[in-house]
Design a binder for these strands. Structure first.
Lengths: 206, 206
DNA sequence: TAGATTGTTAATCGATTAACAATC
DNA sequence: TAGATTGTTAATCGATTAACAATC
């Protein structure tokens, strides 16, 4: 079955809200709807894409649903993440506390700046980007975060893909070309701000 | 007319691609479609929500369309941005080069850490968060970026809203409650990574 | 048993795509 | 004029919501 791509971030959101509930409790789609500001029907539909997790007349076991959502999202296993580009943004991501609490850990960091290479940040020794391929192969890394300046981004991403990386979170303001089978997610900070200026502007202009 | 919210990031994308073209040139929806990987029909539809910018048989003047898209997105004016939270991520955003090239500038920075207050970073003097309201009022700031730790986020956002901020880009992993008329955009880094682990996992599990 | 709530099917809504008359 | 391409209407597609039989 085709799963709408918007279901996945919602599943993340359901999971996030369940984390604040006791494992022993039971929750109905209606209660979860109130917590997440999604509709109860949508929650049941989203879950139904993946199986039957509830009990008619009762609701969902919080403990069981948490486990199932972890499994669906793939966060029941550990994924080692590589960071490319240890500038301001890269360093901030390396230090970001929010990853750890959700079970993510950046375990490898690469840069092309001789002054940074071999330095240790947040317990990670920064490696030359030339060592990327070897590290990806021998450590079975499948996810990478790209935080290099825009002009370097496509080249870095090509290198990631040819090294066998399958999923990329990219912060450089480009729409990179990647081969099929590689998932890329772009976070373009200026574009996000433009959504806000559009909002601020719209009553004025239209 | 109701404008689909997904049109706006696409308009940003069209604008981004136009920037790389000569002002003297003319572009058809089909050519722009190739550049942006959107459909030509969608481009014409998105533009049609805002007016008639092209010439049948010819296409769109790049110079004119750029100007119009800037106006639609509201980036034909300057918007002063306030940053709340000058930790690792906040500092990285303060230094982020990508904002400037798109005409954004963080002009005010706030924190509650006595050790940071009055220090200067990237030419901005960090102020006590207690001074927020006064600064917002007297400088007509309408946009803010929130980069504080999760436990502080809702309180900070409440303060922003009561100070008159109308648009917020939030990096804390919560879904903040804001009053109507305030636009909030959340970037939750762990949730983005979960979209990637879902992708990496899906062939294995389903 | 009566009340509650799931999982699923059908109805609705909204967004994308296709088609084409208008027009440069 | 012939060819190209817009702006717009109609058709299609996909996602959300509503409704309800099944069932705990």
């Amino acid at each position: 079955m085709k799963i709408p791509s918007l279901s996945i971030p919602r599943i993340s959101l359901y999971y996030r809200e369940l984390l604040s509930l006791k494992d022993t409790s039971v929750i109905s789609s209606q209660e979860l709807a109130r917590l997440t500001e999604c509709s109860a029907a949508q929650i049941r539909k989203d879950l139904a894409y993946f199986g039957q997790f509830g009990t008619p007349g009762r609701g969902y076991s919080v403990k069981f649903l948490k486990e199932e959502l972890r499994r669906i999202l793939g966060i029941d296993k550990n994924w080692d993440v590589a960071l490319i580009g240890v500038g301001d943004l890269g360093s901030a991501l390396l230090a970001y506390k929010g990853f750890k609490s959700q079970g993510f850990k950046i375990k490898y960091a690469f840069d092309n700046d001789k002054k940074k290479i071999e330095k240790v940040k947040e317990g990670i020794k920064i490696k030359d980007i030339g060592e990327l391929k070897k590290a990806v192969k021998s450590n079975k890394i499948s996810m990478a975060i790209v935080a290099v300046p825009q002009p370097a981004a496509q080249e870095v991403i090509d290198k990631l893909v040819s090294s066998g990386i399958k999923a990329i979170l990219n912060f450089a303001p480009i729409r990179p070309k990647v081969s099929k089978g590689v998932e890329i997610l772009n976070i373009d900070l200026s574009m996000e701000l433009e959504r806000l200026t559009y909002f601020l502007n719209k009553d004025t202009n239209q």
